[in-house]
């Protein structure tokens, strides 16, 4: 088992791409053989979540890559959690996972099961806050063989406001206004800081020098957020090779989950 926890030998494998991560055998001078297998792959892609006054939007591209190869142009990263049947009827929570797709799938199945079991046992739907904490526990339970994913959970809180939780692979989590994750997170996040939380924006003529008043962040209307999401992904597609093909958006409102798919550049 120990070999599983050693970091991928970077010098041999480059930036964590899968195509060289085949099981390897190293024979040292004294003839001892060391077998190794790196159990993770980065499947690329990016996700993004923004919450509003009475809605939460989660989005993710649908490209799946390994190394420079494109596995598929339609592998969703967004999953409805706790719904009934193949259509996930009645679901009001969305999980987005980006990173290692197999772990993402496994995590989605675990959380879906947990939320369903909660409903069967308690006779009521699980709140997002509860679901969020449960997800943290699921992740931390595998602290020493983590799900290799950056998860974002979206829904509506008990007051009907948009709720968004973001996680690291081992379960640290935080409720936020907006969050980008995955391959192009570093591209999208500063853009969101600026356009959602109005970072580095000041009210013109509100003071001189240090007295200048920062522009206060407000909750954005739904169509503005949808536009921002598209802009963010169009930008990411332009500059990151692992992002592209299609954009899947899920908008959670009191009326349920609305799913929108729109194409992205496929190059």
């Amino acid at each position: 088992m120990a070999s599983v926890f050693t970091a991928p030998p970077l010098a041999d494998n480059g930036p964590g791409y899968s195509f060289k991560q085949t099981p390897t055998t190293h024979i040292s001078a004294d003839g001892t053989r060391q077998h190794s297998f790196y159990p993770y792959t980065d499947n690329g892609g990016s996700t993004l979540g923004i919450s509003g006054a009475d809605f939460t939007i989660l989005a993710g591209d649908t490209r799946s890559t390994s190394g420079y190869n494109i596995n598929s142009r339609y592998v969703p990263k967004l999953f409805k959690i706790g719904g009934e049947g193949p259509e996930h009827t009645g679901s009001s929570i969305v999980l987005s996972v980006v990173g290692f797709a197999a772990d993402g799938d496994a995590l989605k199945e675990r959380l879906d099961t947990v939320v369903k079991m909660y409903k069967y046992q308690h006779g009521k739907n699980m709140s997002v806050a509860a679901c969020a904490q449960r997800l943290s526990h699921i992740l931390y339970n595998k602290r020493f063989f983590p799900y290799y994913v950056h998860a974002i959970l979206g829904g509506l809180d008990e007051e009907g406001k948009g709720a968004l939780y973001s996680y690291d692979p081992v379960g640290s989590y935080e409720r936020e206004q907006c969050r980008a994750a995955g391959a192009a997170a570093s591209l999208i996040m500063p853009f969101l800081d600026n356009q959602v939380n109005y970072k580095n924006q000041y009210i013109p003529a509100s003071g001189y020098g240090h007295d200048l008043q920062p522009r206060k962040a407000e909750l954005l209307p739904r169509n503005t957020v949808e536009e921002l999401v598209r802009d963010a992904f169009d930008s990411a597609v332009e500059r990151h090779i692992e992002v592209g093909d299609g954009l899947q958006m899920m908008i959670i409102t009191k009326d349920g989950i609305e799913e929108v798919y729109s194409p992205l550049k496929k190059d």
């Binding site: 192009a184 570093s186 591209l187 999208i188 996040m189 500063p190 853009f191 600026n194 356009q195 802009d231 963010a232 169009d234 930008s235 990411a236 332009e238 500059r239």
Partner: peptide, 11 residues
């Protein structure tokens, strides 16, 4: 540069 790519491409 990653962050700049994102902000420039967006703005």
């Amino acid at each position: 540069s990653d962050q700049l790519f994102g902000t420039c491409e967006g703005l």
